[in-house]
Computed example of a mutant assay.
Amino acid sequence: MAGGSTLAGRVRSIGRGFAVTAAAGAAAGAAVAGYGLWEKNQFVLREESLAILPAGYGPIRVLHISDIHFVPGQRRKAEWLASLAELKPDLVVNTGDNLSHVKAVEPLLAALRPLMDFPGVFVPGSNDYFGPRPKNPASYLLGPSGQGKDPVELDWPRLRSGFGMEGWLDLTNRCQSLVIQGLRVDFSGVDDPHLGLERYAGWPRGTKGQDAKPHLRVAVAHAPYQRVLDHFTGDAADLLLAGHTHGGQICLPGYGALVANCDLPTWRAKGLNDWESNGRTTPVNVSAGIGTSRFAPVRIACKPEAVLLTLAARP
C-alpha cells in the first residue's frame, strides 16, 4: 500500500507540473498576443536620406506609404493617416494593399484625403483586388502566401478612381512623369508581382540618356520579388519603392523577420538597402507597412510605419 500511495503521489505531482506548465504557456501566449494587438497601433515614421538627385536640385521629400489594410472602424489608424499631411511632402508614393474589407474603400479615401492634396503615384497589391480569408496561422511560416479558392473581390475600380480623381497617378504597368521642385521625375510602375501581374512599361520617352536634361528615375512595385528588383536595377532606376513584406510582421528581437512573404532575403524585409544586379546598384526602400490582415491583427517587434525619404543632390 505504501508503494502504491507513493506512486499515486508522484502521478499527481507530475500532473500538477504539466498543469502549471500548460497554464504558464497559455499565459505567455496570451501576453504575446496582447502585446501584438497593442503594437499594431503603435504607428511610427521612419526617416531616411538619400543623395541621388542631379546637382543643383533638392531636397525632395517623398512620403512612402504601403500595406494599410484598412478595415471600417479603425479610427486610430485613420487619424494617423490624415495626420501625415502635416509633413507636407513633395510627393506621396502608395505601394498597395490598401484594403482588408469589402466596405473599406470610402473610409480609406476619407482618411487619405488630406494626403491627396499633394502629388502622388500608386500601384495595387493583391489586397486591393481580393480580401483576406481566415487561414491557419502556422501557414505564415511556410513561405509566400497564395491566392485561395473563391477569393472575395474588393472594389479596386472605385479605389483607383478615387485616387485618380484627386490627382494621383496610376502606375499599374505604366510609366509617367511629374515635375517636382523643378526636376522631372520619371516613374515606371508594375501591377502586383505577388500575383504575377507585372508587365514592364519602360520609362517615359526621352529618358535613359536620350535626353540631356536632368531627371530622376523612380520604380514602384508592391511586392519586392528579386526578378522585379533585377529588372529595374538593370533598367537604370535611381530608386525603387516597394512594400508587401510587413517587415516580417512577427519578428524576433535581436534577429528580425522570420519570413518576407516573397523571395527577398529576410534581412531585407524592411528598410533602405542597395540592390546589385549585373554591375548596377539601385537603392531600394521596403516599407514595413501600416496594417495587417484583419484575420491576423498583430505585430511583434515590427511597428507599423510610414517612411519619409529626403532626397538630396549627389555630392
Rank of each mutant, 00 (worst) to 15 (best):
D128M: 04
Y129M: 11
P132T: 12
R133F: 02
P134L: 04
P134G: 11
P134C: 06
K135Y: 06
N136Y: 04
P137A: 03
A138L: 13
S139T: 14
S139W: 05
L141I: 03
L141Y: 10
G143I: 01
S145P: 00
S145H: 06
G146E: 01
K149W: 02
D150I: 02
P151N: 00
L154C: 00
W156Y: 15
R158I: 02
L159M: 07
L159S: 03
L159G: 01
R160D: 02
R160Y: 01
G164Q: 11
G164S: 15
G164L: 07
G167W: 01
W168T: 00
L169M: 12
D170M: 10
T172Q: 13
T172N: 15
T172Y: 06
N173V: 08
N173R: 09
N173Y: 08
N173Q: 09
S177N: 11
V179A: 11
V179G: 07
Q181L: 07
Q181G: 12
G182V: 03
G182R: 08
V185T: 10
V185A: 03
D186W: 00
F187N: 00
D191Q: 05
D191A: 15
D191R: 07
D191S: 14
D192S: 07
P193G: 01
L195S: 14
L195N: 10
G196N: 05
L197F: 13
L197T: 01
E198Q: 14
E198G: 04
E198F: 01
Y200A: 08
G202M: 00
G206H: 00
T207Q: 04
K208T: 09
G209S: 08
Q210N: 13
D211N: 13
A212N: 11
A212T: 14
A212V: 06
P214Q: 10
P214W: 00
A219G: 15
A221G: 07
A221I: 11
H222F: 10
A223E: 04
P224Q: 05
Y225A: 11
Q226Y: 02
Q226R: 14
L229R: 08
D230M: 09
T233F: 06
G234L: 11
D235P: 03
A237T: 13
D238K: 14
L240K: 03
L240H: 10
L241H: 05
A242N: 05
G243C: 12
H244F: 15
H244W: 05
G247S: 11
I250Q: 00
G254Q: 13
Y255T: 12
